[in-house]
Each structure stands twice: as structure tokens, then as C-alpha cells.
Design a protein around this nucleic acid. Structure first.
Length: 427
RNA sequence: GGAGGAUUGGCGGAGUGGUUGAACGUGCCUGAUUCGAAAUCAGGUGUACCCUCACGGGUACCGGGGGUUCGAAUCCCUCAUCCUCCGCCA
């Protein structure tokens, strides 16, 4: 959530930014918000004055009682009662304005960073780093991962349908082992890079979902457990970032670096078709996440650092990838700058997104009320996160790119984790 | 799931209706003392919003929400969390 103060102080920057996101009537929306905020201030000032008067009179009543002047006290009491009525009216009005203000504010997405390209669709994304080598090519009989999955017994979507429904893969045998190996590899690399490992809850309450911006924007994307009013996490970002909700950090506590492995649950309503076959898009998948909490001065350096770290993971896996800087229209609601990592799938002949690394600046910390202490007072921190990495498409790419007569040849880094240098056909 | 107890400032811990944003201790900061330090002494030390160029002032916050009252950390209701005991259980 943006701060009203930002809308006032940096109106032009906000407008230029929102334009990149193709937000209609941004200026009018901002004016409406600042107008509501003016009204809020006015009502609050009025109410504070009323309460000040009430407090003063109450003190006097106390003194009068002590000195036994009951009648005078009675007169004052009547006056206080009048003030209370007025105050009640003002408070009701204030509460209404606050709700309205919040409603408007949560509908505004984050302001894209200056370097974020304008644009509406993925075609407008900037290729930030092209793959340096030659993209691998496979023979024409190369198979997509969903066919390899059957041949090698990696996972089964049919079994998932039996237990749950479509889009819930069941990993089996060496597939399950491969998945676990990747989780371990990623966690090891992340903790070695200074991220502290957490295993957070997979269900979160509404406040948590709101603070990182999943609500109200992505209401329909999350599974909601209505009986207990809890949401299944769509990413570990949600519980991990919320670990610090409401905190006031000392400068020496920054940067905070967290990592966590969790399953992620996404309803993905309405996405069907050939491009979502196999593991390309599923309702439940595993992901290892990294999160940083840092100062505004350092946050973009940390973003670079995270991008480099994720790139390192893909290098180790020997997967060809490119990095995109997302355009305003393709970027998530809460992000100020996002880099997507796409791995080349040689069999599908297309790029698959495997990681998204973003700087949210103060958009989340404002909601989280997560600040740190500076010489000049308290200030909102910047929060960042990224996938390091999301598993399904990594598995898809590993299967497809490394298929051979001799089996699926695993990159060296995985050998100790999987306990073998290749996966064997079972069918 | 049942019964009882608890929830106060960075920490510990007072406070059961009237200058209590909150005693006292401790921690931290500044100053004095010291060659320096320790000890000691003096002063300061929460957050948010609003007004003010500033000095300064106002309001709110003692787990969350609501209520009673002229006035609530203090009384009432409700929710949450923690602890103890019982039950159940991976």
C-alpha cells in the first residue's frame, strides 16, 4: 500500500509510474485520496480538540469532588456530556473516512521504478540479460516432460486427480527423490549465502495475507479455509515477510535475510490449455523462497545481489536461462521492480518462468508497519523477495534438456543429492 | 474439548476508578568525577497521528475489539495468545 504522503510529495513520479501500469484515471484517484486524507486530518483535529476539552473538564470535576463542590461538578458534567455527543458524531465520520481512504489506497498498485519499461503485455518486457551461450537443440523426437514423466515414473497427474483433482501432481519414486534433492540443494545454497532457514506455517490469517498484498488484490488466487478463516499460502513470501510485521528494527539488524521451503497453493482459476500441460502450471507446487528486509538506500543493491544469487543456482544446474525486467503492465501489483528468470525448455521450445525476484520498496512495509530506527526517526524498510527456486519448471527443464538414450543425465551438482548421476527409465 | 491462572514500557516488576505515559529496579544515552575505565552522582530515555518555521502543544495507545463512567491500565462483555491441570491425539 502506498503512503498518502508519497502521493502528496511525489505526485509526478507516482503518476508517471502508474502510467506505465496503464492505470486509468490515476490523477483523479490520487486527488480523491488526498482529498479524503484532508478530510481525515480535519476530523481528527476536531475530535482531538473535543477530547482535550473533555479531559480538562474531567480533571476539574475530579478536583471539585475532592473539595466537596458537588453542584458545580454537576454543571460541568452536563457540559462534558454535550461534548461527548459531538465527539461521537465526529468519531463516526472519522471512521467512515478512514475506511473509504483505505479502500481507495489498497486499490493503487506500487509505483514502478524509473528503470521499469512501460508496456502492457509480456512482449514489452525488457530482456535484461540474454542467454550467453547457444540454446541447446534436441532431435525432433525429443519428448516434453509430461511424456518423460511417464517413461521415468517422475510424477503422475492422474493419481493427483484421484486424491484431489486436476493440477495436483503426485511425485513418485526417483521423481520424489529429485524434488527433495532440489529443495535441499537450494536451501543449502541459500543458507550458505547468509539466509536463515525458516519453516513457516502454510496457512495464514487475513491480516497476514493483507500485509503482503495478497488481499484484496488476489482474493481469488488463494485457497480459503472458510471454517477457520485461514488462507493457504500461494508463496512462502507471505508467512516469511510477515514474521516481522509490526516490528521496529535497529539498523544493525539489517539486512534481514530469510529463506524457506514450502509448498505453494494457487487456484489458477481459468487457466487451461496446452501451455499449462504437465508441470507448467499446477495448483500445488514446491518452492524455496528468499526474502530480504533492508534500508531504502541499499535495497536495489540487494535486488542485484538476489538476482546474481538466483542466476548462480541456475548456472549450477546448467540450465540455459535469460533474465527479463518486467514491464509495468506485466509486473505484480505490489512490486516496484521485478526480474523474471526464464529457463529454456528445449523440448517445448519455449521459455519457462522459474523465478521472480522483486523489490517492493515500502509497499509491503507500510502495510506491515515494519520500520527501522534512523538518526532522523523511524522509517519504513524496503522488502524484497525471490524464488530460489520454484521446483516444477526446473524439473520440467531438467527432464527435457537432459534426456538421452542413456537416461536423464543430471547435472553434477545434483549427483550427491539424488544419489545417482542419471534417472533411469522404468517403462 | 473442559477447568483455573495470566497478558503493563527494551527487560524485570508495581499499580483495582481522578495530573498514571504509567512507581521502583535494570538496560541504554548525555553530563560530572577519572590519566582512562569501573563504581558513584545528576539529567534524559516509547510509538503513531495532528497543530507549529521552530520552541512547544494536543490526541491515542498498559494483548485485540466493544461497553459502563464527567473520568479506566484499573469495572463489565467479548475475542486472541500464553501457563497449569484434565481429556484426546500425529
Amino acid at each position: 500500500m502506498l503512503q498518502v504522503q508519497t502521493l502528496r510529495d511525489e505526485r509526478d513520479r507516482v503518476l508517471t509510474g502508474l502510467e506505465k501500469r496503464n492505470i486509468p484515471d490515476a490523477a483523479a484517484k490520487i486527488d480523491e485520496i488526498t482529498g479524503l486524507d484532508d478530510r481525515r486530518k480535519e476530523l481528527q483535529a476536531r475530535n482531538d480538540a473535543l477530547l482535550a476539552e473533555r479531559n480538562q473538564l474531567s480533571r476539574e470535576i475530579g478536583d471539585l469532588f475532592k473539595s466537596g463542590k458537588k453542584e458545580e461538578a454537576g454543571t460541568l458534567r452536563d457540559r462534558v456530556n454535550t461534548i461527548k455527543e459531538e465527539s461521537a458524531t465526529t468519531e463516526t465520520a472519522l471512521a467512515e473516512v478512514l475506511v473509504e481512504l483505505d479502500d481507495r489506497l489498497v486499490q493503487l498498485p506500487n509505483v514502478p521504478h524509473e528503470l521499469v519499461p512501460a508496456g502492457a503485455t509480456p512482449e514489452d518486457n525488457e530482456v535484461y540479460r540474454e542467454y550467453a551461450g547457444e540454446l541447446p537443440t534436441l532431435s525432433d523426437d525429443a519428448k516434453p516432460h509430461w511424456e518423460l514423466a511417464e517413461e521415468y515414473g517422475i510424477f503422475s497427474l492422474e493419481l493427483g486427480v484421484r486424491t484431489t483433482g486436476s493440477g495436483f501432481p503426485v511425485f513418485t519414486g526417483q521423481g520424489a527423490r529429485l524434488q527433495r534433492a532440489l529443495v535441499n540443494l537450494f536451501l543449502d545454497r541459500n543458507t550458505a549465502a547468509g539466509y536463515t532457514e525458516y519453516a513457516p506455517p502454510l496457512l495464514v490469517n487475513e491480516d497476514t495475507a493483507r500485509a503482503t498484498g495478497q488481499l484484496p488484490d488476489k482474493e481469488g488466487q488463494m485457497y480459503h479455509v472458510q471454517t477457520d478463516d485461514l488462507y493457504l499460502i500461494p508463496t512462502a513470501e507471505v508467512p516469511l515477510t510477515n514474521l516481522y510485521r509490526g516490528d521496529l528494527l535497529e539498523p544493525d539488524q539489517l539486512p534481514v535475510r530469510l529463506t524457506g521451503y514450502t509448498p505453494c497453493f494457487r487456484r489458477e482459476a481459468g487457466s487451461y490449455g496446452s501451455h499449462v500441460r504437465g508441470l507448467n502450471r499446477v495448483h500445488q507446487f514446491d518452492k524455496v523462497e528468499i526474502v530480504q528486509v533492508t534500508t531504502p538506500e541499499e535495497s536495489y543493491a540487494k535486488l542485484d545481489e538476489m538476482v546474481a544469487h538466483v542466476g548462480g543456482l541456475l548456472d549450477e544446474l546448467r540450465l540455459p536461462y535469460r533474465i527479463l525486467r518486467l514491464c509495468g503492465g506485466d509486473m505484480g501489483f505490489t512490486s516496484a521492480m521485478t526480474f523474471d528468470f526464464e529457463v529454456w525448455s528445449a523440448a517445448q521450445k519455449r521459455w519457462l518462468e522459474v523465478s521472480s525476484v522483486s523489490n517492493f520498496e515500502t509497499f509491503q512495509s507500510n502495510r506491515l508497519k515494519l520500520r527501522y530506527r534512523t538518526e532522523r526517526g523511524t522509517q519504513l524498510v524496503h522488502t524484497l523477495n525471490g524464488s530460489a527456486l520454484a521446483l516444477p519448471r526446473i524439473i520440467a527443464a531438467l527432464l527435457e534438456n537432459n534426456q538421452s538414450q542413456e537416461g536423464i543425465l543430471l547435472p553434477e551438482v545434483l549427483h550427491p543429492y539424488v544419489g545417482t548421476d542419471r534417472l533411469q527409465r522404468i517403462n
